[in-house]
Write a protein that binds this DNA or RNA. Structure first.
Lengths: 223, 223
DNA sequence: GGCGGTTTAAAACACTTGTTTGAATTCTGC
DNA sequence: GCAGAATTCAAACAAGTGTTTTAAACCGCC
């Protein structure tokens, strides 16, 4: 209860949004959790949409700055030479995983982000796109330089797949409970696991794609 | 307008749920799209929750039956020998991708499923868990047989990551628009891309989990 | 025909949503 | 102290939610 109302609302909103989703989280839930008056959110933020945007922006800008900083560091170290794919993956996804490991709010936020990425309300999507624009451009360039023989479109898809794996990695045991009981308490282990999976997927042999529909070599069941 | 009201409602609900999410989709939107009366959904299904459950169950049971059938076919072919990891991946994820390629409703549903897996309302999660129970058990067993060196927990995580990649693969251009313009019109290409990525990730070298004192001495390739 | 069960229709139900209002209260600088 | 701004508060707002109700229309069938 110590920080000011505005911060308490942001924290409460972050926590509840990841639990219930964007639409199912009501202002009354948020203000109750934040021990603030209902009207406070409209007073401090103007609307529910603006509040949600503030929740995202608060951490997302920082996250992407960290990503770019990590990339800068690797590139300075490389002195113009192409980076190793592993370094680029580390700069983008490692930073995210590390933020997700931060019990001090970062974990909550990353789960929210992972969930929202595929399920965007329109206003969140456009806002996410602009917030990601710079970091995406930087990493695309780095990857094309590191793996010049990988077609652009192919790489974009793999990057997309990697984002999916990251998202599920962060949402963690919530969804994993469907598969079976696992331990997600060790962030270092999760980091190592995800990294090796991502690198393996990124460096997989390029698929053979013909422009015309190909017959799928599939073993039809005998039954 | 040809089929009966119940089917029209199911189709309309499926279409709208993937567009707006579980909570943001209202019964009035659904009944308007289905050209049915508002009360029809409560008459035919009992409640909104029951309708959503029916939307999922209609295709999900069939999907998982297909997965088990595909696994059965491979196992019959192998005559007791362990399957190749690629076959198991094909049986689980290939079937899903192929259903997602079906423009005749399957695509819509798979996007809905991928989105819902990480963002589950409580009742959807418990229902998903029971609907997945059998297929998960079968595939866990097949994988453990095929890759005896891989610790169970390690495999569960990789399976989880693969689900994430699948989910993003299916949600496709919607989310990819953040990365840049790509073509997701060719389902065969998507299938080939995802498969090679998944196999690459699954067969990646096992990570070294340093935090635990017990080391895995046989940390060779995962397959 | 007309009847019984099934389906649709319109309206109202009780409730929750985000937002606004206008008066109290607290804080700030002097 | 105290004016003036900033913040909090309780209450109400209009609009939208899922659900229920009641009557009307439809259907197959003897």
């Amino acid at each position: 209860m110590e920080p000011d109302t505005r911060s308490r609302i942001l924290d409460a909103a972050e926590k509840l949004l990841v639990q219930h989703g964007l639409d199912a989280t009501t202002l009354r839930m948020i203000t109750a959790e934040a021990q603030a008056n209902l009207a406070a959110v409209n007073y401090h933020f103007g609307s529910k949409e603006a509040l949600i945007e503030a929740v995202f922006r608060r951490r997302l800008t920082w996250l992407n700055e960290q990503r770019i900083a990590a990339l800068d560091a690797f590139e300075a170290e490389a002195k113009g030479a192409p980076l190793k794919p592993r370094q680029i993956v580390e700069a983008f996804f490692g930073v995210a995983i590390r933020m997700a490991a931060d019990r001090n709010g970062g974990q909550t936020f990353m789960r929210l982000l992972g969930r929202t990425y595929t399920e965007p309300t329109d206003f969140v999507r456009t806002f996410l796109a602009e917030e990601y624009a710079e970091v995406i451009a930087r990493f695309k360039a780095a990857f094309f330089k590191a793996l010049p023989d990988v077609p652009q479109e192919e790489f974009l898809w793999r990057f997309h797949f990697m984002m999916g794996a990251l998202s599920y990695a962060i949402s963690g045991a919530d969804a994993l409970r469907i598969l079976g009981p696992v331990d997600d308490s060790d962030p270092d282990a999760l980091y190592a696991r995800l990294m090796s999976f991502l690198i393996g997927g990124l460096r997989a042999p390029l698929p053979e794609i013909s422009s015309k529909p190909v017959r799928k070599p599939r073993a039809k069941r005998a039954a």
